[in-house]
Each structure stands twice: as structure tokens, then as C-alpha cells.
Design a protein around this nucleic acid. Structure first.
Lengths: 114, 114
DNA sequence: TGCATATATCGTATTTATACGATATAGTAG
DNA sequence: CTACTATATCGTATAAATACGATATATGCA
């Protein structure tokens, strides 16, 4: 019997999300939220860490980041999650973080469209 | 005799600027600075305003932005300028703002490279 | 059940951002 | 030179971000 593999990092994305306008007041607000979430070196580092690997990362993140306390890293993860750039799922005793491809793609589209 | 036309918005850019690394600690810091500068709706709006037109804008900017006071808009302009995303030159009694193409391009490259 | 581990949340101190009115500065026109 | 205009800077009030230690929560394992 094959194990059930749940690839939550790469589920299909809704087209409607991608096809929203890339300018106008709402797009400005959206881009501001996304870039504000990115506007800290530790969060850039986290995002790259997750983007580089194809898989999610369960734990390890705190160890990889500068000299920040665990609670601080957790706070940064929350900011990225609320911005829709990453997502986290509880996976046993750890939490498994990975990129939210829609959010990252949306960011890239909006920035490219400036 | 022809007039001297000084197109300060489109001067040639140094290649060395563009060819810096797109990841690593320095790039993280650089991208964080750029995105932090973008992380406000009014600043996005300003940047788009300048990017849309090929020319610089002398004055007018305050009128175009939401309902923010002149001093507040000036402050936002300063943030964008310090981030290297726009530049301003005194042009008579007004100040002529325009996109800093290198900075914007660098931002796009760094975001695309995440 | 109770302990150990991983992560989140809370409380809090400090710093930084945002916004405004008031004022300074600098160029233009008269 | 004076008045006018456009923009920047200052002072300041308020809000938000950052960081930490302490603590809560939830899961897996003995």
C-alpha cells in the first residue's frame, strides 16, 4: 500500500487570484502590504530559505536566522503568513512552513508592473 | 543655436550597479531597504505616478496624492529618494522628481530573484 | 499520565514610522 | 528689495514595529 503524499506546498492556485488588477488603489494597498511584510532583513532571509528549497521546512528556521530569539522569529513568521507569502501547517510536534506560491507570484507580478 | 536638453531622468546607468549579487546577506539588506521604502500605499502611488510618465514631475505630486498634507508627502518623497528609487532636482521654483531607473530596476531584479 | 520538545502568545521596553501644523529656505516675479 | 510660491525641515503627538524573556499550548513519547 502506497503512503498518501500530501504536497500542501504546491496545490493548484486559483486563477482569479492572479488575474486581479496590477494597478489602482486596491493594487497599491495590496503591494504596500506585501512589500511592508518583506521590509525586514530577517523576513527576506526566511522567505529565501523557504523559496530555495522545494519542500517545506519543519523547525530549523530559528537556527538558520541571525541571532534572533525564537519568539522574534515566530513573530516574523506571523507577519509573512498574514501577508500571504508563506503558510504553516502543524506536522506532528513541529510546524511545517513553506512558501505560498500565489502570494509570492502576486508580489512579483505587482513589482514587475510598477 | 539649439538649446541644451538635459534629460536627467534617463542618463546611462553603471553596469556595476546592476550586476551585484541577488542573494546573500548584503542583498537581503538591500532588498529589505527597498521593500521597506515601498511599504506604504502613498509611496507606491507616488512611484507609479512617476513611473507611468516618461518625464519628471515638477510640483503636482501633492495634489495627486490622497488627502495627505504637503509636509507628509514631502516626507514620503524623502523616503523614496533615500532608498534610491526616485530622484529630485531643483528646477526653478519647483522640484522636479523622477524615477531613478537603476533603483527601480534593481528592486525588480531582487524581487524576481527571490 | 506526566515529561520533553516545538512553537505561539503575552507583557513590555525601546525604536521607528506616520502625520500634521508651523516655520524655514530658496527661487521668481514685480 | 519685497512679496509670492513651492518645497523642505522642525517639533511633536500618536501609532506601529522590533526584540526579548516568560509563559502558554499542543504534540509525541516513556
Amino acid at each position: 500500500m502506497k503512503p498518501i503524499i500530501k504536497d500542501t506546498c504546491h496545490e493548484p492556485d486559483s486563477a482569479s487570484f492572479d488575474l486581479r488588477p496590477v494597478e489602482g488603489k486596491e493594487a497599491d494597498q495590496e503591494l504596500a502590504s506585501l512589500t511592508k511584510a518583506l521590509g525586514h532583513p530577517a523576513r527576506i532571509q526566511i522567505l529565501r530559505l523557504l523559496a530555495r528549497r522545494q519542500s517545506c521546512i519543519c523547525g530549523e528556521i530559528v537556527d538558520e536566522i541571525d541571532g534572533l530569539a525564537q519568539s522574534t522569529v515566530s513573530q516574523h513568521l506571523k507577519v509573512l503568513k498574514e501577508a500571504g507569502l508563506i503558510k504553516g501547517e502543524i506536522e506532528g510536534t513541529a510546524v511545517c512552513y513553506c512558501i505560498e506560491p500565489r502570494g509570492l507570484r502576486r508580489l512579483k507580478v505587482l513589482v514587475a508592473g510598477i
